[in-house]
Design a protein around this nucleic acid. Structure first.
Lengths: 336, 336
DNA sequence: TTGAAAGCGCTAACAG
DNA sequence: CTGTTAGCGCTTTCAA
């Protein structure tokens, strides 16, 4: 019994009448143990309700079974789903997950978060490179620690799992152009850097089509920030199609446009990104891009595992999100 | 240097020309150290980029700085916000947070999750008692470990932070009744138990008003499950007001009602619960109950801290959610 | 104020 | 197959 009242491995050994290492052997399966002793040990473990101490194990074996996720946020849709995907994959492999939130890219804040995290015995770290705090945190991870970046700008220096947002944004923009819109306006969510896949793909599609490239409008993460933007967009007769950086913002923008007296999609087409569960229930149902965030998390974890045990050396995983056409986009009609 | 290439406390000691315990003393502040040596040690720590190992610390000191959150889900709105609230409060107190997901109340799954969690050196555990997996997990936490339940049925055996959902549901139902509705129908989200605050408050208000109590309809967590329910409700002329267990379901129900050709709130009033960020952007903006989930998480962490260090013995914290009246509810009008 | 010694709970050699 | 011996990185006695 230790100070917290938990049985220890030596309690088990004593009860089973074997040595401590023998107990360890049945626990880890590191060596063969005779069936007789194994049974004794298992019985003792069950009787005592013994649980091995991860701290002691990590200390001596250097094979920690914990990974840390560093994220700028834990509750927004894409973040939460990605974290869920990592957690599920990690759990399936017997890993425990620890979460550290870094709310700003402020150096002190990042340092503090990293320090708190690295204090733990970690098999590796997954960083959500969705935003500036994520980018800043990734830069501070010590080189010897296995790491994977989820999303973000391509960087060969680090294993990375991404969703090919640029390709999807390109496809969505092209779709709008094909519908007959002269150009497509764009409302951005706070980008992780100067470059942002959604914006890049949008611009690329416009350029390729020879369409004018309007200035992108910046929204915040708060869906309400889209309302004022929607109103302003509605006031400009040149605006017939709007591509928003995520579904929440799109919903805000739609509300602003509607409040201004225009109809969607008759007067203005609006598309989002992410395929939030509420997107298909919106009125009108929102055209968007389905992003498999949970899958992103799962692929990221696999890459991290590769980096940890080195069996597989794949370091990059990209998946193309899927366009979901719904009723919020249509061919332009001359405004009444 | 240990095997992972990290400097250890003895590297620091060697570099500073002092003993290991002296380094430990400046680290923990457990005893006075002469300014001269302290400076030497601090310089060595900085030079080496030394970070104490939480595993070793936890092993010897039995004062772990990690708490575990056990949750049935990490990405749904209320869950994610609550987790965020706990994380923020914990971080402010120097605690690291670990997350374990228990997806079903299945005994094996719960046991496995608990076992994986308890293996870590933990100061305490916060359980989201939002659903059956949460309830099942709570029952399995060993008695010596400090624990707090977030939400759920009142249980004096465990420190608990709640949102008084019954009071809020009662208030909302009464509001609908006061508007002139003969009764209020109710669509439930999967309850954590037979009793569920939202349903209880709804029923209480109806009974007190002498209004008929219709059978509650069960939805799943998927907002789409609300659509079919909405259609069915629309087919019943007796339905003029619907109170839904959460906003997502309410959005699905509204869509079903609209698809059936009825208008909201003219033909049917619909109210939700939670005040999802999208609720106010919905058409029409959704009447709901604002739940401060992040605050719930924060209060829960405080209670856990009380249980851990025993300075304060408060074990219960309840807060009354706030009614938010918007355009989805109105006085009943005879259907055309 | 400081160092030497002991030991947290466990796994990794190493004999036997 | 199994026990003995070390020792992980740290804090906690205990003397000095």
């Amino acid at each position: 019994m230790n100070r917290a009242g938990n049985p220890t491995i030596s309690d088990v050994a004593a009860r089973a009448g074997v040595s401590v290492p023998t107990v360890s052997r049945v626990l880890t399966g590191a060596a063969r143990v005779s069936p007789a002793k194994r049974e004794l040990v298992e019985a003792a473990i069950a009787d005592l309700g013994y649980r091995p101490s991860a701290a002691a194990r990590a200390l001596v074996s250097r094979k920690p079974q914990t990974i840390a996720i560093i994220a700028g946020n834990t509750s927004r849709y894409g973040y939460a789903e990605t974290i869920r995907g990592i957690e599920i994959a990690a759990r399936a492999e017997g890993y425990t997950v620890m979460i550290t939130v870094v709310e700003s890219a402020d150096e002190d804040e990042v340092d503090r978060a990293i320090a708190a995290t690295l204090t733990q015995p970690l098999a590796g770290v997954a960083v959500l490179k969705f935003d500036p705090p994520g980018v800043a945190a990734l830069a501070k991870i010590p080189p010897h620690l296995p790491v994977v970046a989820l999303s973000g700008v391509r960087d060969p220096a680090t294993p990375q799992a991404v969703l090919d947002e640029a390709a999807a944004a390109d496809e969505l923009t092209r779709h709008l152009l094909d519908l007959g819109h002269t150009t497509v306006h764009h409302v951005r969510v706070p980008p992780s850097r100067k470059v942002d896949g959604r914006t890049t793909g949008w611009r690329r599609a416009l350029r390729r089509a020879g369409a004018p490239v309007p200035a992108a409008v910046d929204a915040t993460w708060d869906p309400r920030s889209g309302v004022a933007i929607g109103r302003a967009l509605a006031a400009d007769p040149a605006v017939t199609a709007v591509f928003c950086g995520n579904d929440e913002i799109a919903m805000g923008v739609m509300r602003g446009i509607t409040e201004a007296g225009l109809r969607i999609p008759d007067d203005v087409s609006v598309a989002g990104f992410d395929d939030n569960p509420l997107a298909e229930l919106w009125s009108p149902p929102l055209t968007t891009v389905e992003q498999d965030f949970a899958g992103l998390g799962g692929r990221g974890f696999q890459l991290l595992l590769n980096a940890v045990d080195g069996t597989d050396d794949r370091r990059y995983s990209s998946e193309r999100p899927r366009l979901v056409l719904r009723a919020s986009t249509a061919a332009p009609k001359p405004r009444a």
